[in-house]
Design a protein around this nucleic acid. Structure first.
Lengths: 104, 104
DNA sequence: TCGTTACATAAGCGAACACTTATGTGATTC
DNA sequence: GAATCACATAAGTGTTCGCTTATGTAACGA
């Protein structure tokens, strides 16, 4: 099942934090480690999982690798969520308000 | 981290399938097992995980327990997704169209 | 009350997971 | 071309996960 793969990628708190950090701005793997008690191989493995889930994408920049949020993963989750819109609460308006609040 | 808990609940393909089945209509645990090669304790454990993640809620009906989708979990995912709306693709309109398509 | 039904919980086991240390690979600098 | 830096990969290990069988509990019917 494809959908469970992307959820599995987000099932780990460390990967959630990495993704959240990247959402605040793309950066390379070393910069990501700053302030996170995590080894270099662990970070590399987490990024690999996030990349396979299409939550993150990479771009070689010399000897650095720039990582950033891949909108594709978020779209996949959005699509999954949309399948169950019938069960969204009446508070869906609240959610839309939240969406507006999140606008830059 | 709270958000990773709900993703962990959906990280298992079997639980994904259970949730999807419940989304098509609430039913009891025995009915859920129909057509799914899964033992009774396994089903019970999966439902427990989904319930703790607020993806599913239960209601005692005699000696049956009726399970149904809990909108709360979907709202939590929606809230998580909303945090990263800045990274939603320009195709967000496509998603909204998809949302409309999903309307009953 | 006795048996059955519907479900939950306990305990144990193999597989997957997240981490570690060690090593490999590719790009820059000297 | 040698050393170094940024990162990936390999191999090993403790923990977690999802399953199993066995047992417990609550509700119903005879």
């Amino acid at each position: 099942m494809i959908e469970s793969a992307i959820f599995k990628a987000l099932a780990d708190p460390t990967r959630c934090a990495i993704f959240e950090k990247l959402a605040a701005g793309g950066m390379n793997a070393s910069a990501l480690r700053q302030g996170m008690a995590i080894s270099q191989p662990a970070m590399s493995q987490h990024l690999s999982v996030l990349r396979n889930a299409r939550l993150v994408r990479e771009e070689r920049q010399g000897r650095f690798v720039h990582y950033e949020v891949d909108p594709e993963g978020l779209t996949l989750i959005g699509g999954w969520l949309a399948k169950y819109r019938a069960y969204w609460p009446a508070r869906i308006d609240d959610l839309q308000a939240l969406l507006k609040d999140m606008d830059p």
